[in-house]
Amino acid sequence: MSLSIRNQIPGTVTSVAVGEAMAAVKVRLEGGQDITAAITADAVKDLGFAAGSSVKALVKATEVALATGPVEGISIRNQINGTVVDVAAGPAMASVKVDVDGGELTAAVTADAVEALGLAAGTRVVALIKSTEISLATA
């Protein structure tokens, strides 16, 4: 199956905490960074996710926010360090490609944000992704 989701980073499940309806699945990305995906308990069961499962973390570009450094005092737990490799800006929106250990992320942000943050090739950034915006696929 082909998907329009550009962000597909391989990893391995390190733990699964299943609740009544939702589960928190921790994944170590191939580059060594850890993320958490909040998915349904039914999905964990149906897909057979357990520690050691190979997965792909899927995130729409519109769900990736960028910061120029780590952010404290925020509920977003997934903060992935990287370096901007390309910025394609139009009059309203921009596509920012970020090299992260183990893969590449694309963030769709406003052109105003690119200017205000000074985003250009070589800029160090932190990609912020809510755990509820990460889907997991079997690898």
Rank of each mutant, 00 (worst) to 15 (best):
F49G: 00
E20A: 15
T110K: 04
L136W: 06
L66M: 09
G118E: 06
S75E: 12
E133Y: 09
S75H: 13
A111M: 03
K97R: 15
A111T: 15
A108S: 14
A65C: 11
E20D: 15
V16D: 06
A21W: 05
R77S: 12
G82C: 11
G122W: 03
T14C: 09
V25T: 10
S135F: 10
N78E: 00
V59N: 01
G48C: 01
G11W: 04
G19K: 12
D101K: 15
M1P: 13
P91N: 12
P10E: 13
A67W: 04
V16I: 02
A38R: 11
A50K: 13
A17H: 15
V87S: 04
I80L: 14
S15E: 10
V109K: 06
L58V: 09
D101S: 15
L3Y: 07
E63Y: 07
I9K: 04
A38H: 11
G73D: 13
A50G: 00
K56T: 11
G19D: 05
R6G: 09
A21C: 06
V126D: 02
Q33H: 11
T138I: 11
G31L: 07
E63I: 00
E104P: 04
V85H: 00
V87Q: 00
E104I: 05
V100P: 01
A51I: 01
D46Q: 13
